[in-house]
Amino acid sequence: MLFQSAAARSIPRVLRSSASAQARAFSSTSSSAAFQSFLGSRTALVSASALTAGSVAWYTHLYGSLPFIGEVHASAASDHGLHPTSYPWSHNGLMDSFDHSSIRRGYQVYREVCSACHSLDRIAWRNLVAVSHTADEARAMAEEVEYDDGPNDEGEMFKRPGKLADYLPAPYANEEAARAGNAGALPPDLSLIVKARHGGADYLFSLLTGYVDPPAGVEIREGLNYNPYFPGGALGMARVLFDGLVEYEDGTPATTSQMAKDVSVFLHWAAEPEHDERKKIGVKAVILMSTVFLISVYVKKFKWTVIKNRKIFYDPPKH
């Protein structure tokens, strides 16, 4: 810069443009020569090696193994459980709501079967209202359960029938009681189980319908049960769903797979109660944003037409 401006001042006006062009050409030649010498330098070698070693270390840290290099594992694939099948849930699509009849049947299965061991402590009776039950039905179901309340005027706790605001009752008072009642295995809370397991509802359905006899050579301890979808293969829960276990009020045949499907949908709803509203808002957002995007493309083209289509003529000064 210093050189250029000094030169510009000392050189007559006519010559200025060619002089600065020369300066530019000179500086670019020198910079490319510097680049060439940098490529062969020790610094370049060291930094390239450091970059390579760094990215290999980072990749290994992130993914645990390098690509294209074979590995030998001491564990078998069955230790991670079978991959659940992808089932065509009726709420799979971008615009599909839950099947609320299925949620209602699934609640019945949960209440009559699963709730003997599993809690659902993030769902209150009021959450069922206008999802699977009417307010009157939910109130009646809540009143069948007694809840602790108090203290009253004498400072004592008392029992009262449930209200809509109460949460679904847990089968065990605490974790220790739950373990003691299930040979040391803790039945997990089911409120968020669909989000907490790989495969979500597909996994639940596969697990509930996937009980088989252990294959030859696989030994299952006393009190455990074999299920290929469960990581490790042996779990405390036995097969609980058998054809005709519950009687659906809407007359749907209560086969094992029907009950497993309904309870999976119910638990999917329990984990994502916002599901229907979320998808609806998503549809609205996509339509709106696409429209705004198209408008912005049009406005950009409109504003730039003048610049893109103009022609610039150079009219040299005449002596």
Binding site: D99, H100, S101, R104, A130, V131, S132, T134, D276
Partner: peptide, 8 residues
């Protein structure tokens, strides 16, 4: 047919 208002 799937939503609550359809089966209410």
């Amino acid at each position: 047919g799937k939503q609550w208002k359809d089966i209410r």
